[in-house]
Design a protein around this nucleic acid. Structure first.
Length: 750
DNA sequence: CAGCCATATCTTTTT
DNA sequence: GATATGGCTG
């Protein structure tokens, strides 16, 4: 008992010692919430006699679940593995695998990822004659996802929007989408939650069983729950009312995914007996970092007022580096990391580079490779969404679930078998009119007119799939053998080997990793290793789940992915208006969007333990356009005395831009906030006087000597007219020939 | 049917 | 810049 409370502060102890009834823990960043949760699990088991079997702990990522499971197992002395620690989605899959037949689905259902959803939506738009130029697939999918977050069925959705004429099409699409999912025996991510709720609501015995099983429920990152998840929790907890949720409204950053902030703000209203405990002492960050975070988040109006404090010292100042462009920014960060590692002996794993959008990772990757720094990019392209991996998984999905049209269509002609778009179209139409699945239509290919050319290939494809199905059904071989034989028979590997390119080589390596994953799954499977178990394992992993904290590598990821993690040194990069906060939040008319961006900034800042570095670039390429953005407003929201502007090398070297001095106020960059496009680079440039001809006038010409701030003196050897600009070629002493845009290079005639 | 090139459009953020 | 689509040719 005593060691359960060792080293905990009074508030933490109070939370750990809470036994029955609803509990809301408002836990600020770094306030030791995981510790509280695990110790409370131990307390319930060891002091209150609760069976581990009756405890459920829910998280959002597998990484968080694994960490909590490990900590529970090392804290609790017996039977800890019986505690159900899992993500919302895995929990629901587990329940649905047992009972989904009550809802008219088959128990070996497939889980669709974003790619599969999009393919399905494409098919639907085609068959409903919807112009995807006018309405993009994503638009529908987003609307459907939001509806499901709110537990709205297609029928309810249709009733709700019947007065809005332009929404009618959405209702139709949603209805068709859901119909096709069911026909394919497939569920999307949102279905996992929504259908579990539906199951509980429609089936008293099932609900009864789980209510009794999960007598004590704990939820991490509660601020990110949506309405469906909240309903799920209320249903489960309604009998015993032992629901303990931990969250921080200041860290709510998933509104776009349907997170409902009122779940946390109104928790006490829904559960009137709630005990509320606030954890405000931070154990993670230095005082300077915490102060910066507090000051930034203070600018939000829609929040529960609170302030984190720490007993730690002030620590290092927050550094701000301002660079000319994103390449210099990345180089500056890479150099800084290398310097720190060399001088202080820190490990590369102590560093994280965080940014707002995945697109920003590319330049960092380039510079880290060049600097020889080991790194790992989290997110961006998930391992399982690589082409070769998806192809092979779709073979497995096809074998597992014959109703999954999307999977079959993806691989029916991969590798090339001479089954083209027209043939697939004919089969698809045939399937639709006769209400067959795509695979059933393939089996009846001889009845379909106009498909004779591909018929032989289709027969052998069908035979192959059926062969694997039969062997798997008869337990003929392991998943590993299955996959090896599949790779052999389809010649997938052979064809890649024949390519002899670097790209093919990396694809082959990825296939090897997938094979390893399969072997590992079979070895570690708790219950029987099955094909749909494997596919589900794969469908529900996020990229962040596979990150190993002990590997010597710098981590690069979005701030969203970094939630829940901590690092000694954090670089928050791309701190510019229109990047962070993003343009959507700035130009939208919804103040709450800006507040969400600010919370995201708060999350980013509070990831840092010892040192925080902010960077911005004056100029940045976005969607093939060069943008000039002001430094982020969030930088200005941090008190100046906390910030040390360090290696803004360019800022020092070039104190002016087109002759206008930089203001000492970070935000008042003269060249701020206009963007230019390729065709008309000066359209929005405030430095081009109105009425002036748009073409750039240069006071030098071929043969003239000019000077450049970096390369020194040189002779102009060529000038090419680009319409609105000129390309100038200069031969420098010592640097050779360089090409410039006259508008950018500030060349002076001498 | 497959492979190549031109073009359009785009970006938040993810289980 | 990168990716997805559409049209053309062999």
């Amino acid at each position: 008992m005593t060691n359960l409370l060792n080293g905990l502060n009074d508030k933490q102890k109070e939370a750990v010692l809470h036994f029955e009834g609803p509990l809301l823990i408002l836990a600020g960043a770094g306030s030791g919430k995981t510790r509280v949760l695990t110790h409370r699990v131990a307390y319930l088991i060891e002091e209150c006699g609760v069976s581990p079997y009756n405890i459920l702990a829910l998280t959002f990522t597998n990484k968080a679940a694994n960490e909590m499971r490990e900590r529970v197992e090392s804290t609790v002395t017996y039977d800890a593995h019986n505690v159900w620690v899992s993500t919302f989605h895995s929990t629901c899959v587990r329940i649905l695998r047992r009972y989904i037949d009550h809802l008219g689905y088959d128990r070996n259902f497939t889980i669709y990822d974003a790619d599969d959803q999009k393919s399905l939506m494409k098919d639907i738009c085609k068959s409903l004659n919807i112009d995807t130029k006018k309405y993009r697939e994503r638009t529908f999918l987003n609307a459907i996802s939001r509806a499901k977050d709110e537990l709205k069925t297609p029928e309810q959705y249709a009733i709700e929007v019947q007065k809005e004429y332009n929404k009618k099409i959405f209702a139709n699409v949603y209805k068709e989408y859901q119909r096709r999912l069911k026909k394919n025996n497939a569920l999307d991510f949102d279905d996992l939650i929504m259908l579990t709720v539906e199951l509980f609501k429609s089936n008293e015995e099932v609900l009864d069983y789980y209510q009794d099983r999960f007598r004590f429920i704990m939820v991490d990152e509660y601020q990110d729950t949506n309405t469906a998840q909240f309903t799920l929790l209320s249903l489960l907890a309604s009998r015993y009312q032992n629901l303990c949720v931990v969250g921080d409204d200041d860290q709510s950053i998933y509104k776009f995914r349907g997170a409902n902030i009122y779940n946390i703000l109104n928790f006490e209203k829904v559960f009137p007996a709630t005990k509320v405990i606030r954890l405000e002492q931070n154990y993670r960050s230095s005082q300077n970092i915490l102060e910066a975070a507090n000051q930034v988040i203070k600018h939000n109006s829609m929040r529960k007022d609170k302030a984190l404090w720490t007993e730690q010292g002030k620590g290092e100042p927050i550094c701000y580096g301002r660079y000319d462009n994103e390449y210099q920014e990345a180089q500056g960060v890479a150099e800084d990391i290398r310097k720190q590692v060399r001088e202080t002996g820190m490990s590369y794993s102590d560093f994280a580079i965080l940014y707002r959008t995945n697109a920003q990772s590319r330049v960092f990757e380039e510079k880290l490779v060049f600097a020889g720094i080991p790194y790992r990019i989290v997110g961006a392209i998930n391992f399982y969404s690589r082409k070769e991996i998806k192809d092979i998984l779709c073979y497995l999905k096809t074998i597992n679930n014959s109703a999954d049209d999307i999977a079959i269509k993806r691989i029916i002609n991969v590798p090339k078998r001479g089954i083209g778009q027209t043939t697939i179209g004919r089969i698809s139409d045939f399937a639709l009119t006769n209400n067959y699945s795509f695979f059933e239509a393939l089996q009846r290919v001889d009845e379909i007119p106009g498909t004779s050319r591909g018929a032989a290939a289709i027969h052998s494809f069908v035979d192959m799939i059926e062969k694997y199905r039969a062997r798997l059904r008869d337990n003929f071989y392991s998943l590993e053998d299955l996959m090896n034989e599949l790779l052999e028979e389809t010649e997938y590997v052979k064809l890649l080997e024949a390519e002899e390119t670097v790209e093919a080589q990396s694809r082959l390596e990825n296939i090897d990793s997938l094979l390893n994953k399969i072997t590992q799954y079979e070895e570690e499977a708790v219950e029987e290793a099955t094909l749909d178990g494997l596919l589900e394992d794969i469908a529900l992993v996020a990229d962040i789940d596979t990150v190993d904290d002990d590997t010597e590598q710098v981590l690069l990821m979005t701030i969203h992915s970094a939630k829940g993690l901590e690092f000694s040194h954090v670089y928050l990069c791309g701190m510019e208006e229109n990047i962070f906060p993003g343009a959507m939040a700035t130009f939208g008319d919804d103040e709450s969007e800006m507040e969400e961006e600010r919370r995201l900034c708060y999350v980013g800042i509070t990831r840092a333990k010892e040192k925080l570095t902010l960077t911005s670039a004056n100029q940045r390429m976005k969607n093939g356009e060069t943008n000039f953005n002001k430094p982020s407003r969030f930088i200005n929201e941090i008190p100046r005395y906390l910030i040390k502007q360090t290696y803004g090398a360019v800022y020092k070297e070039k104190p002016d831009f087109n002759g206008v001095k930089f203001s000492p106020d970070f935000s008042k960059s003269p060249a701020s906030n206009f963007s230019r496009d390729r065709k008309n680079p000066f359209a929005n440039n405030p430095y081009i006087q109105k009425g002036m001809p748009q073409a750039v006038e240069a006071d030098y010409t071929v043969g003239d000597m000019v000077s450049h701030f970096k390369f020194g003196q040189g002779r102009v050897t060529d000038m090419k007219d680009l319409g609105n600009d000129k390309e100038v070629t200069v031969d420098f002493e010592g640097f050779g020939q360089r090409k410039f845009r006259a508008s950018f290079a500030k060349l002076k005639k001498i």
